[in-house]
Amino acid sequence: MSPMQRKKDRIDALAATAGTAGDIPDAGHVSESGGLSLIGSAWLRLRRNPVFLVGATITALFVLLAIFAPLIAPHSGTANPLIGQVTTNHPIPNPQSGYPLGGDNQGRDLLSRLILGSRQTLIVGVLATLAGLAGGLVLGTLAGSFGGRVDTVVMRIVDVMLSLPSLLLALAVATLFGQPSQWTLIIAISVVQIPIFARLLRGSMLSQRSSDHVLAARALGVKRGPITFRHMLPNSLGPVLVQATLVLAVSIIEAASLSFLGLGNPDDSSPEWGQMLGRAQDLFDIAPHIAFWPAGCIVVVAFGFTLMGESLREALDPRNRR
């Protein structure tokens, strides 16, 4: 089985969980007697799920860190108080009092740059995911609403996008813009995510198309617009939004790899983890710790988002209902 086929199958399996979205309110629900709603029962199960708790905690800490980074960081990200300790033989200042992780090769505080880097990393991840989501929503809605020939054409385009190795596609987009920047990074990553979201949404839209409530709405003469946007789309979004959580993790890693390859923001006055990692590679022999810290942060945060996304998906999957 080709990797592309595997990718497709995984997306379609996800979409299939949306096929039953129509009966979700029934399944976990006791009507009238103040019973549980869909969200309510999912939340009850999530609250008892250690996987979700760990993921959510990591995610929450990361987001808080990113928001309050300038307040938390002990030093500025651009000042170089340790520049006096940077020598040709010993380019990386050691950890010392006031600078628990030491400095970088320009005498800047490593800890402060890590903390400040969380913000840039989050911004890139979130914007890339949102852009991918937006593109996927447009294509998926087109395919799922019109079906037939439109569906065929849109899905062939999506398949082509899906078949390109994501890093290669990202590289192409980044080089297309000539000068790499934070924005080429975001565009590159989101282009890679579009086909995943599109395929996912199209799958759940198609299962909505044949659902009872859409048939009932058509039996009342409701037009295509409202059928799509009021009856199909809102009921198809569940798996797409869960996927977005998972894509956040992928985006952060992808951003790191692109920055590492020098396709990120060249200006290091606003630090970003992938970029810090990239800069650390020349000095890896002498000072592995300056690569370790940003790499560790990326892994932990991506892990957090993945745990949260997977447990959300599990909780909202009607097949897991007891």
């Binding site: 979700i24 659902s211 009872d212 048939l215 009932a216 003469g221």
Partner: peptide, 24 residues
């Protein structure tokens, strides 16, 4: 036909729960 459905001829179905849009 779409203009006539709901205006001249209407239909109700077997399963009232799944015939209603859950999010509206």
């Amino acid at each position: 036909m779409r203009d006539r459905r709901g205006r001249d001829v209407a239909m109700i179905f077997q399963d009232p729960l799944s015939s209603l849009n859950p999010v509206v």
